[in-house]
Amino acid sequence: MVVYNELVAITAGAGLIGFAWFLTRLIGGLRIDSEGWAGFFGVTGVLLLALGLHTTITWPFGGDGFEYANIAFGQPAAGFGALLLFAAVYLWRHRALFAADVDPARRAALDALKPVAVFVGALGLGMAALAITFVRFQLGAAPPQEPISGRFGHLPLLEALFLGGLWGVIALGALLFAVAQLADRPSLLRWAARAWTVGGVVLLLFGAMNFYTHIGMYYNIAHGTSHLW
């Protein structure tokens, strides 16, 4: 089974942190380096869209009831990647606007994000449903061959609560962003940014850990070892 959820996780985590940072600067009236941010959103967006679409279409996670991972990981990644690419294109095309006065650029960017908020809210609803699904069906338990996470595999509710909580925090940020934009309640944007910062940091660290634990799992399977750390 060839998977790449490690790269998806750290890229999505970085994308969430980056967009939360960008949003905080935007609503704070700080100057935006549109070319730098366009590059960041472009790199993260391309990776997430490509890998998310591939996961969504080909279902590389398979067997032993693990097929749900294709839905839980691939589809949100594809949607988020497309949104990041939108941000990249917008910021690149409006370089002159962001290089001039801060306030007109800020107002224009927030206005441009209003229609996007519909899809952000839709993704938030999907992530909320996935959060409930993780807990309801106790999904996500690591196999015993996987170091660190596998030590808690006999407690499936533990990892289900972790993943459900993580997806739930990200969903909360998306729903707050949608309400803030569509109901004209800009004060909620800061709370959306905070939720995405927390979710992004946890997701990034979790994905980075999985580079170690997943390689350790394959090593244990291939060599018949039982490294737990």
Rank of each mutant, 00 (worst) to 15 (best):
V2T: 11
V3L: 12
E6W: 03
L7T: 11
V8L: 15
A14I: 15
G15I: 03
I17L: 15
G18T: 11
G18Y: 10
A20Y: 06
W21D: 08
W21A: 07
R25F: 04
R25Y: 04
D33Q: 02
S34A: 14
W37S: 01
G39Q: 03
G39Y: 12
G39L: 11
G42H: 01
G42R: 01
V43H: 04
T44L: 13
G45D: 03
V46E: 07
G52A: 10
G52K: 01
L53F: 14
W59E: 13
G62N: 13
G63Y: 06
D64V: 09
G65K: 06
F66P: 00
Y68N: 03
N70T: 11
N70D: 13
N70S: 10
P76W: 02
A77M: 09
G79C: 00
A82K: 00
A87N: 08
A88R: 01
Y90C: 01
L91K: 06
R93D: 13
R93G: 04
L97Y: 09
L97W: 07
R107A: 09
A112N: 08
K114I: 13
P115F: 14
A117L: 10
V118H: 11
V118C: 07
L123T: 08
L123S: 08
G126Q: 12
L130R: 00
A131R: 01
T133K: 02
F134H: 13
R136G: 09
R136K: 15
Q138S: 14
A142Q: 06
P143R: 03
Q145R: 10
Q145H: 12
R151A: 10
F152H: 04
H154Y: 05
F162N: 00
L163A: 03
L163N: 05
L166Q: 08
L166N: 11
I170G: 12
A171C: 12
A171K: 11
L172G: 14
G173F: 14
V179E: 04
Q181N: 07
L182I: 12
L182H: 03
R185L: 13
R185N: 07
S187P: 00
S187A: 11
L189R: 04
A195C: 15
T197H: 07
G199Y: 04
F206D: 05
A208N: 04
M209A: 09
Y212H: 01
T213V: 08
I215D: 07
G216K: 01
M217I: 02
M217P: 00
Y218N: 10
I221D: 09
H223K: 06
G224R: 05
G224M: 06
L228K: 05
